[in-house]
C-alpha cells in the first residue's frame, strides 16, 4: 500500500475549512449589520430640539406668571403624537423665564393664584413663588425651568 502524502491534502482541507468559515461569517455579519443596525439605531436617536413661539414680550407683566399652552406635533416612529405642555412665562425686566407647570412633588398640574400671587399645587398643597422657588409644602425642588430665547420681542421656548 502506497504511503499517502498528508501535506497537500491537509492543506486543501485547511483551505476549504477557512473558506467555509469566512463565507459564513461574512454572510452572518452582513445580515447582523443590516438587521441589527435597523433594530438598534432608533434607540439612540435624540429627540429633536425645537423652539416654539410662546408669546410676545411686551404683552407680559413683570413678575406675573402667564400660563401658556404649547402644542407640538412630533413623530413617534411610524405614528405621530401631539403633545400639550403648559408653561408659565415670567417676565423680569428685559428677560423672561419659562417654568414648567408640573409640580416637582408628584407631577400634578399647578395653578397660579392671582390673589396670593403664588403658584399652588392642588394635590398636596405645595406652594411656589413666581420664580418657581418652593415656599411651603412637600415639593422637593423648585419648578423646572425651561430654556427661553427672545427674537424680535417674540418669546421662544425650547421643547
Amino acid at each position: 500500500m502506497q504511503a499517502r502524502q498528508p501535506a497537500p491534502s491537509a492543506n486543501r482541507r485547511g483551505f476549504l475549512v477557512r473558506l467555509i468559515q469566512t463565507v459564513h461569517v461574512g454572510i452572518g455579519a452582513t445580515l447582523a449589520f443590516v438587521v441589527g443596525g435597523a433594530v438598534v439605531a432608533p434607540s439612540f436617536t435624540r429627540r429633536a430640539v425645537r423652539w416654539l413661539p410662546a408669546g410676545r414680550l411686551p404683552q407680559l407683566q413683570d413678575g406675573v406668571p402667564v400660563p401658556v399652552t404649547l402644542r407640538v406635533a412630533r413623530p413617534d416612529g411610524a405614528s405621530e403624537v401631539v403633545e400639550r405642555r403648559l408653561v408659565y412665562l415670567v417676565k423680569s425686566g428685559d428677560g423672561v423665564r419659562a417654568l414648567d407647570s408640573t409640580c416637582t412633588h408628584l407631577g400634578c398640574r399647578t395653578k397660579y393664584n392671582t390673589e396670593t400671587r403664588q403658584i399652588e399645587c392642588p394635590c398636596h398643597g405645595g406652594v411656589y413663588d413666581t420664580q418657581g422657588n418652593v415656599v411651603s409644602g412637600p415639593p422637593p425642588s423648585p419648578l423646572q425651568s425651561v430654556p427661553t430665547r427672545i427674537e424680535d420681542g417674540q418669546v421662544l421656548v425650547q421643547v
Binding site: 443596525g37 439605531a41 413623530p75 411610524a78
Partner: peptide, 16 residues
Amino acid sequence: DSVRFIMSELPLGWML
C-alpha cells in the same frame, strides 16, 4: 406609513 417609515426614516431600513 410604517413601511414608509422603514424605507425613508429608519437607518438601514431601506436595505432591510
